[in-house]
Amino acid sequence: MIRYLAKRFGYYAALLLVAVFLAYALSASALGPRSYFEAKQPRPSAASVDRQLTALNLNDHTPVVERFGTWAKDLVLHGDLGRTIHDTSVNDDFGRRVWVSLRLLLIGSVLGMVLGVAGGAWSAVRQYKISDRALTLFSFVLLSTPVFLLALLLKNGAIAAKDATGQEVIPFTGYETPGLAGGIGAHLADWSLHLLLPTLSLALGGLALYSRYQRGTMLDVLGSDYLRTAEAKGLTRNQALIKHGLRTAIIPMSTMFAYSFLGIFTGAAFTETIFGWHGMGEWFIQAINEQDVNSVVAVNLFAAVVVLASGFLADVLTAALDPRVRT
């Protein structure tokens, strides 16, 4: 089992390496930091632009492979992600923003998973009953609403609430109230309130997706021989469903989580931008508009690591849940 996981890990490392190089090559050639400097007022001389670009390891006259080499060496030796186009440290930005994003990503996806699995299993057991149909319709509507639109709708709702009551009932910008006085309790409450809408816009999509999927795997299990065996032993239907049914039906979900993380990550980028969170997603969009190659690569690296980590986690989870893949 350890061997199996070690092998998966090796594969992911190889993927990561190739992927990061491709991301670097793509960003470095598609973006034009030179034009960013040339557009400055007053227009700097060609030599000075060249000097600045070289200092930032962004000079397009240096071959991409060489620039990548410099970047990778700094990263491996010093853990240094390079300089932004404003000549500040990418690491600083990264360090600040990564927690903002992770908070949203983790809470949003875990909440979506738990609710989705529970809802899907429940829906399957009550197949074709009113509650099943209601949940199905609800998921379909949610699945047909792009994340950014869902976020916008939630935000508009909050704005409407504010306009109606004259005060901000549910905050819809940023992740904390600036300059809030009070103890840790007040801060925690403030954070949770700020988390509410962005998390919802991520979790609701997850809930819809996972519940559909879980409903399918659970329906499979409902007709299985071993569930019948469990009942033939003398377990009641509900005991058998939970102990033997749900336990088995949850296995394929782990792969599903890994796949859908891509979508959630993208969704998080939109959500951050819409709710004014200074996270990785917002940074990415801003960096592209500023032709900031190193920042773009940093976000890509983050995305690749998160996606692969979730893939690896899914493998671990599958191995833990399913004795058949362990041998």
Binding site: Y226, T229, E231, A232, K233, G234, L235, T236
Partner: peptide
């Protein structure tokens, strides 16, 4: 449920799928 497995027990055809795999 009190009778199943206690007074009357059952053996199924396909022994692979009749045990919970996990």
């Amino acid at each position: 449920a009190k009778i199943r497995g206690n007074k009357i027990a059952m053996v199924f055809q396909d022994p692979l799928s009749a045990f919970t795999p996990v």
